[in-house]
């Protein structure tokens, strides 16, 4: 869907912000651009809708070279979300969401339907917010409106530049989850800039990790964690990469590999019930935090067995290492 072909960006004469980057993004995938600040991830993103010029190489969106298109038309066909939402304070929420349809001249009925659909999608009441202004909304609500605006004209591709970076951790986690659900429904091809490895693992179908303008590794999160290609990637993903990779596996995965323990009848032991969809990192956290000696696993409202720290450890050795 999006193809980077030996893309290079040079500022001035010497500074190579992006250096000969090539990779393909399949349709419907979220690819997270990850790296420290100044690594070229944002520049790479901004070359897709030509907010930055491409010095050398080509970027194709849906088979078309972006440089062959009118830049205004191109941008209207690509969703764009930035960190500080960039909502227009002088416009109502409805006008903000409908910014692109207004530019390309949709009729009233089509706009009204689309507005309602999008606001429902991002979990805001369409009528309650219609005539309100951005400053009346919280950061999380503003970012939801920002996402709705990016999807207004139903672009197949979306660019998101640290979209959740300015939100506090609790709201960030909530919006990340909501956004993944939205993505299940809309299946956009998304390029997503982040500097947070945990966010990248959570959101990405694939991660592109950058350093000094060079693409260090482009792989699925589990591959990146299991087999970092070089020292930089190993360091960036952190010493706890084994632990991080646990967040990609659920209790259900563990059950498919190992038998669960039988539920013992001992009422005194410290137990906690979790669902099979819980990821193993969270399960381990609960066990380590001494909230429970063992976890009772629940599937379809039935208790199917129990697990202990040993089980997670064994799974880790057997499956991830």
């Amino acid at each position: 869907m999006i193809k980077f072909d030996q893309v290079t960006k040079v500022y001035g004469d010497k500074v190579k912000a992006v250096d000969n980057v090539s990779f393909d993004v399949p349709e419907g995938n979220i690819v997270v651009f990850l790296g420290p600040s100044g690594c070229g991830k944002t520049t790479t993103l901004r070359m897709v809708n030509r907010l930055e010029t491409i010095t050398d190489g080509k970027i194709f969106v849906n088979g078309t070279d972006v440089n062959s298109l009118n830049e205004i038309e191109l941008r209207r066909k690509i969703g764009y979300v930035i960190q500080h939402n960039g909502l227009f304070p002088n416009m109502t929420i409805e006008d903000n969401v409908m910014a692109v349809p207004n530019l390309i001249g949709w009729d009233r009925k089509k706009k009204a339907d689309r507005y309602k659909y999008l606001m429902d999608l991002v979990g805001l009441n369409p009528d309650e917010y219609r005539k309100r202004y951005p400053h009346e909304l919280s950061g999380g609500q503003q970012q939801r409106v920002g996402i709705a605006r990016a999807m207004a004209a139903d672009p197949p591709v979306m660019l998101m530049d640290e979209p959740f970076g300015a939100l506090d951790p609790v709201i960030r986690t909530r919006i990340q989850n909501e956004f993944l659900q939205i993505q299940q429904e809309v299946k956009k091809t998304i390029l997503f800039v982040s500097h947070d490895i945990d966010e990248a693992i959570k959101m990405g179908d694939a991660i592109a990790i950058f350093q000094n303008g060079k693409l260090m590794q482009y792989d699925s999160p589990s591959e990146l964690l299991a087999h970092p290609k070089n020292e930089f990637v190993r360091e960036f993903v952190g010493k706890d990469r084994a632990l991080k990779s646990l967040s990609l596996h659920t209790v259900e995965d563990l059950i498919s590999e190992r038998m669960l323990r039988k539920l013992d009848g001992n009422e005194n032991s410290n137990k906690k019930t979790i669902s099979v969809e819980t990821n193993l990192r969270d399960a381990l956290s609960i066990l380590l935090n001494q909230e429970a000696d063992q976890l009772v696993v629940q599937a379809n409202n039935k208790l199917v067995g129990a697990m202990k720290i040993d089980d997670v450890e064994a799974y880790l050795h057997q499956h991830i290492k």
């Binding site: 205004i72 930035i82 500080h84 960039g86 227009f88 530019l103 660019l159």
Partner: peptide, 14 residues
């Protein structure tokens, strides 16, 4: 706020 202008440009305002 330069972010506003960036957002406007990025979604296709002339």
């Amino acid at each position: 706020d330069p972010n506003l202008l960036d957002a406007a440009k990025g979604i296709g305002y002339t």
